[in-house]
């Protein structure tokens, strides 16, 4: 019983990270029809920005802040201006392919300019463990879960309770009407990219102490988050959150009770079933498009 409890709690921790990255998929899709296949690499890269700061002997909290800041500039604003804007006018598919190329570029750059080897990354939380219903859970896991949840809640509050957040939602729902109503659409879209960059940077700081900093980390995270976003509903933030948690828990339980070898296939199986049975995702909204 403790084992199952542990697996569920560990799954929640992993799922919270998946959710943070998956939310980015939905945010970018809703506001600018961007599918960012470099999203996993976006969650890998900030850890290296932070490592550079740590190598300069800066404290961890400052390194994380700097990492988030640099990520917002490069993975948010520069990404939008230099890649998304020029490519999007050619359609969604060229942009998607361009982000795949960007993913390769980012991986190879980290390999070339930092290291191909895994690097240790300090944790924000202590190594001690606490007893939760008979299962020994590390404070690090609990901390990761709580910080990720706090970030998701803060984002939801921002989107629903602030004028800027509501403007962003208006842009996501109907940019033409939003523009007529005086919403600065371009600025809102840019802000969405900045928020996505901040979220992936946070995910990076939370998960890297566990996964170690490595150029290839984005492959696992990106794929898991993409699947989570589709399973939950690509056009709903709450869908991405639900998909993230579902995948985190199912992955752990499948590995323990079904098969370690086929653990990677289970989320894909869920993806296929969801696409066949409920294409809009578990919590997604059916969309109709004129073609």
């Amino acid at each position: 019983m403790e084992s199952l409890l542990y697996l569920v709690l560990a799954g929640l921790m992993t799922g919270a990270i998946y959710a943070l990255v998956a939310i980015g998929f939905t945010l970018l899709w809703q506001t600018s029809q961007t599918i960012n296949f470099a999203q996993g690499e976006f969650a890998m890269l900030p850890a290296f920005f932070m490592l550079v700061a740590l190598n300069l002997k800066l404290p961890l909290w400052l390194a994380i802040l700097l990492g988030v800041g640099v990520s917002i500039l490069l993975l948010g604003l520069a990404f939008k201006r230099l890649l998304v804007d020029p490519m999007l006018r050619h359609g969604v598919l060229p942009l998607a392919i361009a982000t795949m190329a960007l993913a390769i570029f980012l991986k190879e750059s980290v390999k070339e300019f930092y290291s191909a080897e895994a690097q240790r990354f300090p944790s924000l939380f202590p190594e001690q463990k606490v007893d939760v219903g008979g299962a020994m859970i590390s404070i690090q896991s609990i901390g990761v879960f709580l910080v990720a949840i706090a970030a998701v809640v803060a984002l939801q509050l921002f989107l629903s309770r602030t004028r800027t957040g509501r403007s962003m939602q208006a842009v996501a729902q109907n940019p033409t009407v939003a523009r007529i109503l005086g919403v600065p659409v371009e600025r809102m879209i840019l802000l969405t990219f900045a928020i996505n960059a901040a979220l992936v940077a946070l995910a990076s700081a939370l998960v890297t102490p566990i996964y170690l900093a490595k150029f290839s980390n984005g492959e696992v995270l990106g794929m898991a988050a993409f699947v989570a976003a589709i399973v939950g509903g690509f056009n709903q933030i709450r869908g991405a959150i639900a998909g993230g948690f579902l995948l985190g828990i199912v992955d752990n339980i499948a590995a323990a009770y079904v098969s370690t070898q086929y653990r990677a296939a289970i989320p894909l199986l869920i993806l296929i079933v969801v696409i066949m049975v409920r294409p809009q995702g578990l919590l997604g909204r059916a969309e109709e498009r004129t073609v």
Binding site: A10, T14, Y211, N217, D251, N252, A255, T260
Partner: peptide
């Protein structure tokens, strides 16, 4: 990357 299930 994740060994939680293996350790269980």
């Amino acid at each position: 990357a994740d060994f939680a299930a293996d350790v269980v």
